[in-house]
Design a protein around this nucleic acid. Sequence first.
DNA 1: TTGACATATGCTTATATCGGAATATGCTAG
DNA 2: CTAGCATATTCCGATATAAGCATATGTCAA
Lengths: 113, 113
Amino acid sequence: MARAATTSDVFNAIGHAHRRDILDALIGGEKTVGAIVDDLAMSQPQVSKHLRVLDEVGLVSWRAEGSRRLYRIEPTRLQPFHDWLANYEQAWSERLDRMDVYLKELQQQGGPQ
Amino acid sequence: MARAATTSDVFNAIGHAHRRDILDALIGGEKTVGAIVDDLAMSQPQVSKHLRVLDEVGLVSWRAEGSRRLYRIEPTRLQPFHDWLANYEQAWSERLDRMDVYLKELQQQGGPQ
DNA sequence: TTGACATATGCTTATATCGGAATATGCTAG
DNA sequence: CTAGCATATTCCGATATAAGCATATGTCAA
């Protein structure tokens, strides 16, 4: 077998730097494909293809205006990522708690020999 | 050209489901390679390779204990994710604000027709 | 309708992995 | 030193894209 078939997965979508660049470029608000092409140094088909991936995953949406498309970020779709991160932060703080308990025990016992 | 050479990039590292699975398996604390192999249904070489990637990116670290290796998560390396997400949360809340303003306008006007 | 512009799509090539199997390395016990 | 276990590494074939180029599609203006 080969690479895991994980396309159309939010994590995979943001796993590529160019797509993160595109998302970053959209932080200020909706933008035209051409504007993104100008902002970043990418070819138009390249941008369109990455936008397609981002759209399939739901990270961006668009509306037509004449012959242009205005793309915008769909920040709510970052929720899975957010949730994923939260697990580790919880694990981390629990770990700090345990360390805290340990340190307090040491204090009560007068410290290690 | 082909796929962007973005290995040894934290975002790329978590872009693959199996590596996220491994990280999840390590949430409870440090674990042996063999333990991970048992937990997830993956071959030992497969797990070792993914651990290598995660290690190169700094998302895990390990200590030797006899002939075993105990791997653990390195939560501080999650900071880039946190920072990146923070940008979009701002965009997100701004969007909620705009929606709020819009809703208030509707209220003052007596609602849409 | 034609022309010009904006964007999407199809085709091709190059390449980065992924996964599997076999093997190497490292450590410990006896 | 040898056997055996735990893990890493190498070699391999398969495949999923990424990027480039050319082209199709769609929209507006005249």
